[in-house]
């Protein structure tokens, strides 16, 4: 049993953190140049031939840096179901994707292509009109697609069984990155801000909620890394682990952000401070894909009835309106 990152994975995290600190809004081509879009793409298709644990490292750092763009949509939701020549395009930075799983589709402003579920297949949606909707989290808009027609068939719709745990695990580890940054801000502030002649971190009314925030984050991160490993290894527990991780990590991220806002006092509530952006991303993650309540219902079905996979997926939506 070994639950540590390899030196290569640690180096990848360091590279990601340095790069994202220096480049707050990287272009898709830059991410491709770093090799991030082809992490799990086979080497003969221009990728690195690595796996989901390496991608998880990047998801976490992108969450921490609150990076805008279609990385999560492309890599977590679409990449593994693409035929190899289309995977090669993603690895080369020539294409990015999003998946229209429900009526509200993420990253329609930045993703070049749209995958859509229809009948027994997943297709590329062609000729559709996109409308971007305003969302609280400005870094990850949602939108709707209208019209268009299914073009190239990408995969059988059964591929969704593989996509769902991937997406949930990716959201979970991204949430951990968001929470980590919010906690860092809070610790920094509590260790320097003075009131009543002392640094506020000495007061247990401040330090104990921060200890709880750390605790909640570490528990969630353990689940998210467990889920990531299960996805990478195609372990039979992947659906349950990913459901548990997403429910737990999204809730942790929201609560850690709320604690951080409270610890910051008035400044934490302003538009000027970055905290509200982290908070809005945490709320976005919590609402996306599946709620904590519905995910826990899946976990309960596993714990009490031994069901390993969730029930039938909601009716797929081919196109919305128009």
């Amino acid at each position: 049993m070994d639950f540590t990152f390899t030196p290569e994975q640690d180096a990848l995290r360091e590279q990601a953190r340095d790069f994202l600190t220096a480049n707050s809004e990287p272009a898709w081509a830059e991410l491709a140049e770093l090799g991030w879009t082809g992490v799990s793409v086979a080497e003969e298709d221009g990728g690195a031939g690595l796996g989901f644990v390496e991608e998880a490292v990047i998801f976490e750092e992108l969450g921490r840096a609150l990076t805008k763009g279609p990385y999560l949509s492309t890599v977590a939701a679409v990449l593994p179901i693409l035929p190899s020549e289309l995977q090669a395009e993603v690895a080369a930075g020539e294409a990015s994707w999003t998946l229209a799983l429900g009526p509200l589709v993420p990253d329609l402003d930045t993703a070049q292509r749209i995958a859509v579920v229809g009948g027994d297949g997943i297709f590329e949606l062609e000729g559709a009109e996109r409308e971007i909707l305003q969302t609280t989290d400005e870094t990850r808009p949602l939108g709707v697609v209208r019209g268009g027609a299914p073009g190239r068939r990408l995969a059988d719709s059964t591929a969704l069984d593989e996509i769902r745990p991937r997406l949930l695990a990716a959201l979970a580890i991204e949430a951990c990155g968001v929470a980590r940054r919010a906690l860092e801000y809070a610790i920094e502030y509590a260790a320097s801000r003075e009131q009543f002649g002392r640094r506020i971190g000495v007061y247990q009314a401040v330090s104990h909620p921060l200890a709880d925030a750390y605790t909640q984050l570490e528990l969630a991160r353990s689940l998210a890394l467990w889920a990531a490993w299960c996805v990478a290894e195609q372990d039979e527990l992947a659906p349950v682990a990913a459901a548990a991780a997403k429910a737990s990590a999204a809730e942790a991220a929201v609560q850690v952000c709320e604690t951080s806002i409270q610890v910051h006092g008035g400044i934490g509530f302003t538009w000027e401070h970055v905290l509200h952006r982290l908070y809005k991303r945490a709320l976005w993650i919590e609402s996306f894909a599946a709620s904590g309540t519905s995910l826990r219902a899946e976990v309960a079905a596993y714990v009490l009835e031994g069901k390993k996979a969730p029930g039938p997926a909601p009716e797929p939506v081919l196109t919305q309106g128009g």
Partner: peptide
């Protein structure tokens, strides 16, 4: 059922947190 799921999840979280700490120790 929701509460039971929460406790199962928390138990798994404690387990994998211990694994992380143990791996670091090793």
């Amino acid at each position: 059922r929701d509460k039971i799921a929460r406790e199962w999840i928390e138990m798994q979280a404690v387990r994998y947190t211990n694994y992380r700490s143990l791996s670091q120790l090793m």
